[in-house]
């Protein structure tokens, strides 16, 4: 099955670890997931630790053989050993963290080594490496040993390494983990630039704002299964029944709050600095309950009422918790 429109097609993709893997014996890490990634889009794979994000990336990037199901990357079946080397020329992976570089080599020497492993012609290497160092703003540090790099510099040289073969698909496994906001913003901007240039990006992240800012489409995994899929708006609307009602009153409504809690509604009142009271109530059906709740608070002199729509993080937490 070849779909030129899609960079990745996964159908019923499953990975079970064998009986001799310490700590993971017989564990189903990814359980029959299906999704499609269009060429050139940024596709997010979200989920809590152990949800199967990294396992999914490993299977799609030829680093792990799927137990069952289909995974077609750039029209090639990743399970077919004959495709692996051809596919590896066209993809690359960046893992978060500081591992994966030769610390006693300089940034430039690392890039030269990997350029050779990817068969980049010698005559093109110098210009390519210079342009990559420039892209990740490491020209001045290019000849310093990587062991002397800061964490942010290591992550940037990782990204430069991953672009050495001009990959059509770039897998980014938590690329901004542990980085300061300024460097993270730089990396997000780089990811957008790559996507604008036609590179398909598969991104895993724990930062919802990052996923919201970058991803065209996404899947949310929980315990190896997909619990949410689509655009950011699709994901949010899939839990639209959950909204937060915010009521500000002049007088303390704690009695009402307590009675709402007794009815199993998630309600919290806090005192504001300007001597008023803010009550937040999470509703499962805002439309139906709104008027009734407002009536309960009216005796406490309501000064404002507002409904807060769910964020991606709200949606994520709801979907993941439902999936547990």
């Amino acid at each position: 099955m070849t779909c030129p429109e899609y960079a990745i097609v996964a159908e019923g993709l499953t990975r079970t670890y064998g009986p001799f893997i310490p700590g993971s014996a017989g564990k189903v890490a990814v359980d029959g997931i299906s999704f499609k990634v269009r060429k050139g889009e940024i596709y997010g794979i979200l989920g809590p630790n152990g949800a199967g994000k990294t396992t999914t990336i490993k299977m799609l990037s030829t680093m792990l053989t799927p137990t069952s199901g289909l995974a077609e990357v750039l029209g090639m079946d990743v399970r077919d050993g004959k495709n692996i080397r051809a596919l590896r020329k066209r993809i690359n992976v960046v893992s978060g963290g500081e591992r994966g570089l030769y610390y006693r080599l300089s940034g430039r020497q690392n890039l030269e080594f990997f350029a050779d492993l990817y068969g980049i012609p010698k005559k093109d290497q110098k210009a390519l490496i210079e342009s990559l160092l420039s892209l990740v703003e490491l020209i001045e540090a290019a000849d310093i040993k990587v062991e002397n790099y800061s964490r942010g510099m290591k992550q940037r040289i990782h990204i430069a390494r991953s672009l050495i073969n001009s990959p059509e698909i770039l897998f980014l496994d938590e690329p901004t983990i542990g980085l300061d906001p300024e460097i993270s913003r730089g990396i997000r901007s780089l990811i957008k630039k790559l996507s604008d240039g036609g590179t398909t990006v598969i991104l895993t992240t724990h930062y919802m704002f990052e996923a919201e800012e970058l991803c065209d489409n996404m899947v949310i995994l929980s315990r190896g299964r997909i619990v949410g899929k689509g655009t950011v708006d699709d994901i949010k609307s899939s839990i639209s029944r959950v909204s937060s009602l915010k009521i500000i009153t002049e007088e303390d409504p704690s009695d009402v709050t307590a009675s709402l809690c007794r009815e199993n509604l998630d309600a919290v009142t806090s005192r504001l600095l300007n001597e008023r009271y803010l009550t937040k109530i999470t509703l499962n059906n805002a439309d139906r309950a709104f008027t009734a709740i407002e009536d309960l608070f009216r005796p406490y002199a309501i000064s404002s009422v507002g409904v807060e729509e769910p964020t991606l993080e709200d949606a994520y937490l709801t979907l993941v918790n439902e999936g547990l």
Partner: peptide
């Protein structure tokens, strides 16, 4: 230990050649 084995393995070059 250093995580470079995965980067090597991911390249199209055979480990044997390296």
């Amino acid at each position: 230990m250093n995580g470079t084995f995965e980067s090597m393995l991911l390249s199209p070059t055979k480990i044997f050649d390296i």
